[in-house]
Design a protein around this nucleic acid. Sequence first.
RNA 1: GGUCCCGUAGCCAAGUGGCUAAGGCAAUGGACUGCAACUCCGUGAUCACCGGUUCGAAUCCGGUCGGGACCUCCA
Length: 444
Amino acid sequence: MRIFNTLTNKLETFKPIHKDTVNMYVCGPTVYNYIHIGNARPVIFFDVVRRYFEHMNYTVNFVSNFTDVDDKVITKALEDEMSEQEIANKFIDAFYRDAQRVGSSTKYLAPRVTEYMSSIISYIERLIDKGYAYQVEGDVYFRVTKITDYGVLSGRKVDELKAGTRIESNDKKESPLDFTLWKKTDVGITWPSPWGEGRPGWHTECVAMINDIFGGKIDIHGGGSEIKFPHHENELAQNKALEGADIANIWMHNGQLNIDDKKMSKSEGRVILVKDLDYDYMGFRLFTLSTHYRSPINYTDETLTNYVKEWEKIRRVYKQSFYTLDLKDALEVKAEQSPMLKGIELKFMDAMDSDFNTANAITELQNLVKHTNQILRKKDTEAELKSAIELFDTFFKILGLNPGVTKLSASDKAIYMAWHDARKNKDFDKADRLREQLQSRGIL
RNA sequence: GGUCCCGUAGCCAAGUGGCUAAGGCAAUGGACUGCAACUCCGUGAUCACCGGUUCGAAUCCGGUCGGGACCUCCA
């Protein structure tokens, strides 16, 4: 299987560091607000990455953090007259609800910065010991100029960065590119450190936690493309300083989700929160996976509506297939996979093997829909239908789509049979009444 | 200002040197049908523009126009 490595800008054949295991870390949210639909994109995509590796029988150690120490958290806590911890807990709960809404698993290790404070402090101490960081009046900064190839991940050159006049000037820093590892402050929650009361900068938490949890280099480090610089660049720099090597074998970055072709912006009123999305969430998930993960997605109501309809179509044929077998008590029939279905399966897996090309994988899901609809029009196809259902189940599991179809109850079946008989006897008034019942039960 | 990405049918979107440029939505013709819904079959593209490299370009190179992102602890 091949994955695009943002560090080398090339497709690379995936080779795990430890046999049959994938260690991956995805930068998680700062928990000061509800997540918006752009935040949901990596939550969905990297969930699919994990699912596909698991389908390939890897053991996946998936870790995604919560940044619960941050200026924004502190500001929000002051505004709402709550503690930072209360704010964090509130929005972590909300995050889990939203992740579940869009079909992503929440059963993974989710370390919080506040739980790893001693690791972060000792990590900074080691950077100082090695001469890669320096203390000024209770602040600690990273000495970027000591990293010779700084900018390698984001494709920037130190000279160009220095030339940028927009970098905030700070007299305490040796170089404007140096970034904060520890910030002296008495605003909001603080921790004691060898440099005094304060709190850590953003860029250390991920490397410190990765080292603490995984004990070294991981296979995949992921996140949104907008945090490639400076956040991931700085993580890489810190790890090079301490270990002389990269923190991850492969860096993966997903493209952004825009609205009206522009980045979401709270100040311009261009934000849609996941919890406020007034559409079917599976349709939304399908929408986000229908574009290759490295490309930007443009959100419009029209586009999302199309994918919601598409999901209904997928779900409908699955439901019909499932109920067709259920009504015949044939759900446990032995599946017989046709060459056609085998071909669809192979192409689906090929697409996933090619840098998680979910767009092409979904095309195969659509082929399966069409083919299954053709099977449904024929008679005596239980074994073939069963095979189609199994393939749907496989695809759904990998993509994290859930049709929510369960076995019919005895009364469901009775109504269905009565409807069938009424139509057969041309008692259409009765048939229409029964049809309404079936529709209200979600069977038709 | 600097760096980078993108521009494929009305819409969404794959394809990044080689058969007639996938797939979906919409539209339209047909089939199925008690009605409706669903579903199936058919119908659509000089790949933004100009020039170059090549036997061959949507794909590589240069330019033009248009859109966007990053350089601000913004997912």
